[in-house]
């Protein structure tokens, strides 16, 4: 007998009929379960929000007054006839894969995830399931990340060289998650770390929930460049190259993103350096994550969906592409 699937893909988002809720919906719904606080997953206008305790502060900071409820990793909540639990996705602090069990059938919506332990977020925990919904932002074999320590060495060597030459190092990175991860990778012994307001606002929220970050100074119009020789400035990519940067005199700019793997994108962004560091799984990471779930049915969302699902199909999975309105294929945006 054909039965209603545990999760289905609607024009509002990923829907669970058994619990009458949505996961990361992109249009307003009554009840939303949110994997993490990035803008394409946690949107404004839902009746109620459920997210991990660690993810909620940022979501509240961004969306203001919302009706919300926190949940711990691993805690099981019954909604209608569905059993729901949140498990670390390793993407950013508080990010979760959402597991939904109905009559013994297990589905996992993984939101965005990465496999490597970044030392900041709770590391990814594979969940056994029958149906797995995966992103494919970097679902091509040309995307393979080097270990974080190796990239951290490159990053600090670059900063040290800039400081030695009397230049300011401008580093562009997404303000939630990536920026804090970089802060933990940087060697504060090299010089002062200045932050753009957007980054510092997120820092304050995360510090408030007990996440340890090195000392940073928020950049204002009164910041004296001369008093901050050898500084590194951490800002959203869109803020680099604006007028305030010029006050700092000679400088070099860099971006930190998975897209920096591609020389063409790096050159187009016109930065001096590109550091390949992503909060999404690389090609081997996606494949190992999928393998570890033991799932036979894979739903591929945002990214190189067609290619990735074809590869999965050829290798024995039942894979299909599902359209979503998550960030997706975007080499020009700031996340990833």
């Amino acid at each position: 007998m054909a039965h209603t699937p545990v999760l289905s893909f609607t024009d509002h988002g990923i829907y669970c009929a058994a619990g009458d809720f949505y996961i990361d919906p992109w249009r307003p719904v009554a009840r939303a379960l949110i994997t993490h606080g990035h803008a394409d997953h946690a949107r404004w206008g839902h009746g109620s929000y459920l997210a991990t305790h660690q993810a909620l502060p940022v979501i509240q900071h961004r969306l203001g007054e919302i009706a919300c409820q926190g949940i711990s990793y691993g805690e099981v909540l019954r909604i209608g006839t569905a059993e729901v639990s949140f498990h670390p996705a390793g993407h950013v602090p508080g990010s979760a894969q959402i597991k939904v069990v109905v009559e013994g059938e297990i589905w996992v919506a993984s939101g965005d995830y990465k496999i490597e332990d970044d030392g900041l977020s709770d590391p990814f925990e594979p969940q056994k399931c029958h149906h797995f919904i995966t992103e494919s932002t970097f679902g091509l074999p040309v995307f393979r990340w080097r270990p974080q320590d190796a990239v951290a060495d490159d990053l600090n060597n670059w900063w040290r060289k800039c400081a030695g030459e009397g230049k300011t190092a401008f580093l562009g990175a997404y303000s939630l998650g990536k920026a804090q991860r970089l802060l933990r990778m940087l060697d504060p012994g090299i010089g002062p770390i200045l932050t753009h307001g957007a980054v510092e606002a997120t820092n304050a929220v995360l510090r408030g929930q007990g996440i340890d970050l090195p000392t940073t100074v928020q950049l204002t119009k009164d910041t004296d460049p001369k008093a901050n020789k050898g500084a590194l400035v951490l800002a959203p990519p869109s803020a680099l190259g604006s007028a305030w940067a010029k006050r700092f005199g000679p400088g070099e700019s860099a971006f930190a993103s998975g897209w920096m793997q591609l020389r063409g994108v790096r050159r187009r962004r016109a930065g001096d350096r590109g550091f390949v560091i992503s909060d999404h799984a690389d090609w081997p990471g996606l494949l190992s994550a999928i393998r570890e779930t033991g799932a036979e049915n894979i739903y591929v969302t945002h990214g190189y969906t067609d290619v990735f699902s074809r590869y999965l199909t050829e290798n024995g999975w039942r894979a299909e592409v599902v359209p979503t309105e998550f960030g997706g294929e975007d080499a020009e945006g700031e996340a990833s």
Partner: peptide, 16 residues
């Protein structure tokens, strides 16, 4: 499929 995304054959080979 990867080649047009990278946009350079030498680079695509180096990366895969």
């Amino acid at each position: 499929e990867s080649y047009p995304i990278v946009g350079d054959l030498a680079e695509t080979i180096a990366l895969v």
